[in-house]
Design a protein around this nucleic acid. Structure first.
Lengths: 339, 339
DNA sequence: CTGTTAGCGCTTTCAG
DNA sequence: CTGAAAGCGCTAACAG
């Protein structure tokens, strides 16, 4: 019950292993007749070349590693799908590693992928320190960071424009006539949260509106976090007519809070979320939100990675992906284009 | 910039490669002093053994393949997480393959994993025919089917008890006094849908209630499918006081339909879904549903797989995982235990 | 306790 | 157009 190997095919076809190798890889000259004969034997024997033997000989495994904090999180699941699909399209297979948000496990995963000799590595929302990250990057020829930037290294990253997202969300509310717009800001430690908040402020400033820190409340990035923060925000500031939320889960919490207070959405309060997770379209009223191109995050990462693999030593590159406003019932209004 | 190899470590430590191999794998005797010296050199040089070289020598790659229709689907994302985590805990890495529900791609993925010489394969909700599946199984020593059964093969599978789920959901409605219970049944071609419907019928029969086919409507497994089917069901049968839904998405559609018709949930109509996706807890009213243990599907699959790898040639095994009723607002009531 | 000798299955030279 | 020899980095099986 041993695997059939190249030598078996060669013997059966009456040629050398080298010839079999040539027809498999389509390089070098092989007469049409020989090729056909070899192909037939391969088919008949059900031969499959051994990737690891090939890997040992070529020092290329046709494999890329993907490290994510949690595949079950829809955000990373979409990234993973993007990575998997485009890697597959280019003939690569992907090793998936889950870190459970734990830097220790992240390091371990990276080590394990190094042993597997992946050709390249995609690291998503790394929880490592800059120092650790620099060390890791140094060990790998081909490396792409997703949703994280690292200065001072030959690093390629694919990022989301969170500031633009915050701006977009806020602008939309302002444009539909809401002048008292609050922010349910998510965790204070969140990098993307800070950027979205920055966008919120920028949008206010652009319209010549003052920034009221008391209209901004941090919260856990969950529905219940959003609900509670919104409840407090609304009871202290009933003057608010619009709310930008850190993400869609928080926005759903805001929706619940509005309901708790008998406040009509969007009539009394218009709400905009971030991310456009599937849930956003299913709640009532459906959420207006900033769609973040998660799948594309994955495909672009693979693109950058393979670029590095082909042409060696590219300089650093950074791709920033833009969010897109999706208008639904929680903050309706004509979607206008940028001036 | 070449990788440091075992020979480098051996030379540097003044021992043979074999000794280095022994300390790395922790097998065979090595004096404590030598071990320490080797370890130090490994550390200093940043040596990492080559998994592929080892794989070629041992014919074991420490790798398992996971094939799913779509990682971005929360169901499979959870399975994938279960697989990844427990594989990792046992020192295995997992190759993830997405088939996009396409049998052709599924076959291709399987072939590709065979080339990578994975030690075992986990195939999730396969879209292949029985014949194709039999062929695939025959090529692999270690194989586990998730959410799919295959008769007449030395196959191991991990399954969800869909019939019990349908029964559980229906029983709950009957117990809280709903005697006119309809079924929004999902796609007619869905295997799990048919089983859940069977459970629905069984529960009715157990209570001595008649089965009315006109209270059952198929639909697309989506919120809009559920909404439309429920709308039709309610307008033809306003007598219904309870609804079992194929899955949570469909149940959310049913919720929307009830709202459309000004029908109160749960007062006028109690609704039970299936799966317990995150969404279920977030809609208003929150959904009562049958939780299907998706993460465990993954962990158990790995368990079965590794069992096969260790002790060769196990007989077929089948693990059936039980659903669990999660009571929330859409069909409240004291959760009773089985009689 | 440690080292030597052979491969694992493929591809890379370099010759025919 | 085809083949022979050598080796990728590691470990199994023996020796010592």
């Amino acid at each position: 019950m041993d695997r059939v190997k190249m030598a078996d095919v060669a013997r059966e076809a009456g040629v050398s292993a080298m010839t079999v190798s040539r027809v498999i890889n389509g390089k070098g000259y092989v007469s049409d007749e020989t090729r056909r004969r070899v192909l037939r034997v391969i088919e008949r024997l059900g031969y499959r070349p051994s990737g690891i033997a090939r890997g040992l000989a070529t020092r290329r495994t046709g494999t890329i590693g993907l490290v994510v904090p949690d595949v079950a999180n829809p955000f990373f699941a979409d990234v993973a799908r993007g990575v998997e699909e485009s890697a597959y399209a280019e003939g690569y297979n992907v090793f998936l590693c889950n870190t459970d948000e734990d830097p220790q496990r992240e390091l371990a995963a990276l080590g394990s992928l190094e042993e597997r000799q992946v050709d390249g590595l995609i690291l998503c929302s790394s929880r490592l320190t800059e120092d650790e990250l620099h060390k890791v990057v140094a060990r790998h020829t081909s490396f792409v960071l997703v949703n994280r930037r690292l200065v001072g290294a030959r690093t390629h990253s694919v990022l989301l424009d969170d500031e633009a997202a915050g701006r977009l969300a806020t602008q939309h509310l302002l444009r539909i006539g809401r002048r008292a717009v609050g922010l349910v800001a998510g965790p204070e430690t969140s990098h993307s949260g800070q950027l979205r908040a920055k966008g919120y402020r920028a949008a206010l400033a652009a319209d010549g509106l003052p920034y009221y820190p008391e209209w901004v409340r941090p919260c856990a990035p969950t529905a219940s976090g959003g609900r509670q923060a919104t409840l407090e925000l609304l009871s202290n500031h009933p003057e608010l007519t619009g709310l930008v939320c850190y993400n869609d889960l928080v926005a759903v919490g805001a929706l619940q809070a509005a309901k708790d207070r008998g406040c009509q959405v969007p009539a009394d309060l218009a709400i905009v979320g971030h991310d456009d997770i599937p849930l956003a379209a299913l709640v009532t009223p459906a959420l207006t939100t900033c769609r973040m191109p998660r799948y594309e995050l994955g495909t672009r990462a693979v693109g950058l990675l393979l670029e590095q693999l082909d042409s060696s030593a590219e300089p650093s590159a950074e791709i920033v992906l833009s969010p897109e406003l999706v208008v639904r019932a929680s903050a309706p209004g004509p979607p206008e284009t940028e001036p």
